[in-house]
Amino acid sequence: MSIRLIGLLVLLLTLPVQGNAANTPCSGSKGGIARCDGPLFLCNDGSISGSKRDCSAERLGAGSTALRATGNLNGECPCGSGTLCTGPRGGQYCMTPSGTKSYRRK
């Protein structure tokens, strides 16, 4: 019976630690946050984070420059330039250094 009690105590002590764990923008294979692109988090792999948080509000010295959306469809909107392209169905994206589109979360 004391083994069950000890097991229960260990379980209860580890729950708050797991509850405090949270995902951060650009976590995992994205390599962390490189810098802000207006309200978006620009990741070290060149893509933009899908986070709904506002980078310029959270990071000191990040600036609050507004992103411009263009109707440009030929991919002249590199991530980090402050400009997002608008696709044919209204999605906004930037082009990563590897040539893929990184879409802004709606």
Rank of each mutant, 00 (worst) to 15 (best):
D37F: 01
G31Y: 11
C36Q: 08
S47F: 02
G28D: 13
G28Y: 04
R105Q: 07
G50D: 12
G7K: 09
G61H: 10
A57I: 07
A34R: 11
G61N: 13
A66N: 09
N23M: 08
N74K: 14
S81I: 07
D37E: 15
L15S: 11
G19S: 14
G28K: 10
A62H: 08
P88M: 09
G87R: 07
P78T: 08
L67N: 11
V17W: 12
G32M: 02
A69L: 05
R53V: 00
S49E: 00
T83V: 15
L8Q: 06
G46P: 09
I3T: 13
G80V: 06
L67M: 11
G63M: 08
A22Q: 14
G99I: 04
R104W: 03
L60F: 10
Q18F: 13
G38V: 05
S56W: 13
Y93A: 04
G28C: 06
G63N: 09
C79K: 03
L40N: 13
A34H: 04
P97M: 03
G63R: 09
R59L: 14
P78L: 08
G82F: 02
N74S: 15
R59P: 00
V17G: 00
S102N: 06
A21S: 09
L67D: 06
R68V: 14
T70D: 07
R35D: 13
A57Y: 05
L40C: 00
S51M: 02
L9A: 15
N20L: 15
S27L: 01
T83P: 01
A34W: 02
G7L: 15
A66L: 13
P88H: 06
C85P: 03
A66V: 12
T70P: 04
M95Y: 01
G75N: 15
N74P: 00
D54W: 11
G61A: 10
G63H: 07
G82C: 06
S56I: 01
M1E: 13
S98Q: 14
Y103M: 03
